[in-house]
Design a protein around this nucleic acid. Structure first.
Length: 589
RNA sequence: GGGGGCGUAGUGUAGCGGUUUAACAUUCCGGCCUGUCACGCCGGCGAUCGCGGGUUCGAAUCCCGUCGCUCCCGCCA
């Protein structure tokens, strides 16, 4: 019933005291949320994890009454009293316990508290202070709710996976540095001078070995470490719901995972449509200019190359002539934007790599305002408006560049504008599987093919012939789950054919020895009967943040780090002693 | 590595070149109060305006630097 009271020094948890307890003598423990001292009568709101209950202290209880006057916020109390109905007219409908109160006979102060640096009950507090005194910040109702929701998500996930034949297996935190991917966190080995472990960027290789080992369905709530710059949705360490399955098709994996996502969102009473909408990578890039489109609003990108290729506007015409594209979006209701407001957009586009940003403002009355309109015939402008499905009052924005680049710049503008003009309905959730990712990208710096997901990703069967001819056109069995424009999870089917795997290594410029050096143990394992397998990993922090509609994952992590990687509470990172360094055979420069 | 924002009593904000002894709310401290629940009323303490330098007759206010936090680009297979 009241699990916080079971085995405990109290008889009830504060938030669970109701009319059912009328007349009961109870022992409560908790923190003083607020004190209302009326001189002749003292009210204490006592708070524990379960909630708040009002304690009333009457002068007839001399000792308790004396104590009550000395009590301050956040003191820890042990209260003995009786549950009473509140007098008529004093019921507090805002409190689950608002119909009753506890008349205290005895108050024992278990611990005092310094005056907190901010009010636990208060609203916005500077994040520096919140992080420094995180234990106080975490007492706030909002943070308690966030972490409890996180716990519920984890519980749902475990239940779902356990019921579907998965077993949870831990993989090492001290492992081998693999040069692909993000920057590794390194841990020096004391026993083996000049050798280092790396903290895992993900359990990728180990979970595939577990498939070879015959576990068939594995999961782990795994911490993953990446030494890259932090963002609102990126910490140095994050938690993955990591999964791998054998003898599954892509379709099977997506369906299985949809069930898990459905269960998770039930926590927030969000019904998700299944099957979850699918979209190919190519379509997303063309229509939304990114591989994680937010489909809660429109503003789709349209190609107008064919309309403008013969127009007098040289920038557009030449771009098309040289194999580029001219594309645009229609920003609803932005036709009245001032010149300076549009200049800001141009600057933003430039910071995303645009050479320029052309625009046509359709004023609400029907006038066209634009520095480039004079280069077009009326019928061309009409055609553009029609292509972009624009309405009076819209602002049309155009980028001329290489096709994909034009789309990606417009994609960034689309997101920025949607945010600026409030197009995003915050309590709507949009789920999307993005599928058919290209197997490779092109690494401009090193002038070679680069695996888009990772080197074990399986190319789509029908595209395998293209490996030799047009490898950049090869699609893969790789998929991402996108919620509201955030990549929440991603994975792939893996290669289990040695010949194919060697070919992929070759294509990305790894010879057999190099591949052995980097992934040897996995490749060796594959020689002993690797089953077809595949999997994915979810970012738990992002998932919970989206569920709770939080802007940053710091709100759903108990002890997060700042953008410079500091823990303001513990003071990490910090210097270490000479002695520690000596044992690790490390000399600082 | 680059671009933007913020930094003023414990907390949240206002003030943005001069009658400002830096304001308001809240917290905190003291007093009064037997039905409050953001308790109320009265009184009080509390800030050299992140730090350093510059411009100026005069700087919280303008400029430069620096530190911290934050958002974004790069980066994050």
């Amino acid at each position: 019933m009241d699990e916080l009271a079971r085995f405990a020094m109290r008889t009830n948890a504060c938030g669970t005291v109701t009319k059912n307890n009328l007349g009961d003598e109870v022992i409560l423990t908790g923190w003083v949320h607020t004190r209302r001292d009326h001189g002749g009568l003292v009210f204490l709101d006592l708070r524990d994890r379960s909630g708040i209950v009002q304690v009333v202290v009457d002068p007839t209880q001399h000792a308790a009454f004396e104590t009550a006057h000395t009590i301050r916020s956040e003191y820890v109390l042990y209260i003995t009293g009786r549950v009473k109905e509140r007098p008529a007219g004093t019921i507090n409908p805002n409190l689950p316990t608002g119909e009753v109160e506890v008349e205290a006979y005895n108050i024992k102060i278990l611990n005092k508290s310094k005056t907190p640096p901010f009010e636990i009950d208060g609203t916005s507090v500077d994040e520096v202070l919140r992080l420094k005194y995180r234990y106080l910040d975490l007492r706030r109702a909002d943070m308690q709710h966030n972490l409890m929701t996180r716990h519920k998500v984890v519980t749902r996930v475990r239940d779902y996976l356990n019921n579907n034949g998965f077993i949870e297996i831990e993989t090492p935190m001290l492992t081998k540095s693999t040069p692909e991917g993000a920057r590794d966190f390194l841990v020096p080995s004391r026993l083996q001078p000049h050798h280092f472990y790396a903290l895992p960027q993900s359990p990728q290789l180990f979970k595939q070995v577990l498939m070879v080992a015959g576990f068939e369905r594995y999961y782990q709530l795994a911490r993953a470490f990446r030494d890259e710059d932090l963002r609102a949705d990126r910490q140095l360490e994050h938690t993955q719901i990591d999964m791998e399955m054998s003898f599954m098709t892509e379709e099977g994996i997506l369906e299985l995972v949809e069930g898990m996502v459905r269960d998770v969102f039930e926590i927030a009473d969000v019904k998700i449509p299944t099957p979850i909408q699918r979209m190919t990578y190519d379509e997303a890039i063309h229509r939304y200019g990114c591989d994680k489109p937010d489909l809660r609003y429109g503003m789709e990108i349209e190609d107008i190359s064919d309309i403008v290729e013969k127009a007098d506007f040289k920038v557009f015409a030449n771009t098309v002539k040289n194999g580029g594209a001219v594309r645009g979006i229609a920003a609803p209701g932005c036709g009245t934007f001032s010149r300076s407001r549009i200049d800001e957009l141009t600057e933003f586009a430039a910071s995303n790599g645009a050479k320029g940003l052309a625009w046509i403002a359709l004023e609400p009355e029907g006038n066209v305002r634009s520095p480039i309109a004079k280069f077009f015939r009326e019928d061309q402008i009409e055609a553009i408006i029609k292509r972009l499905k624009a309405n009076p009052g819209d602002l049309l924005l155009f980028v001329a560049d290489k096709p994909v680049k034009a789309s990606s710049i417009l994609g960034s503008l689309r997101i920025k504008l949607a945010d600026q003009i409030g197009l995003i309905q915050p309590d709507v959730f949009n789920f999307l599987w993005l599928v058919d990712f290209p197997l490779f990208g092109w690494d401009e710096d090193e002038n070679r093919l680069d695996p888009n997901h990772h080197p074990f990703t399986m190319p789509r069967v029908e595209d395998i012939p293209l490996l030799d001819t047009e490898p950049l056109k090869v699609r893969s069995y790789a998929y991402d789950l996108i919620i509201n424009g955030t990549e929440v999870g991603g994975g792939s089917l893996r290669i289990y054919d040695q010949g194919l795997q060697e070919k992929i290594f070759e294509l990305i410029g790894l010879n057999v020895e190099e591949a052995r050096e980097k992934f040897g143990f996995l490749l060796e394992a594959f020689e002993y009967g690797a089953p077809p397998h595949g999997g994915l990993a979810f970012g738990l922090d992002r998932l919970v943040a989206i569920l709770l509609q939080k802007k940053t994952i710091r709100e759903v992590i108990a002890f997060p780090k700042t953008q410079t990687g500091s823990c303001l509470m513990s003071g990490a990172p910090d210097t270490v002693t000479e002695q520690q360094l000596r044992e690790l055979h490390i000399k600082l420069s």
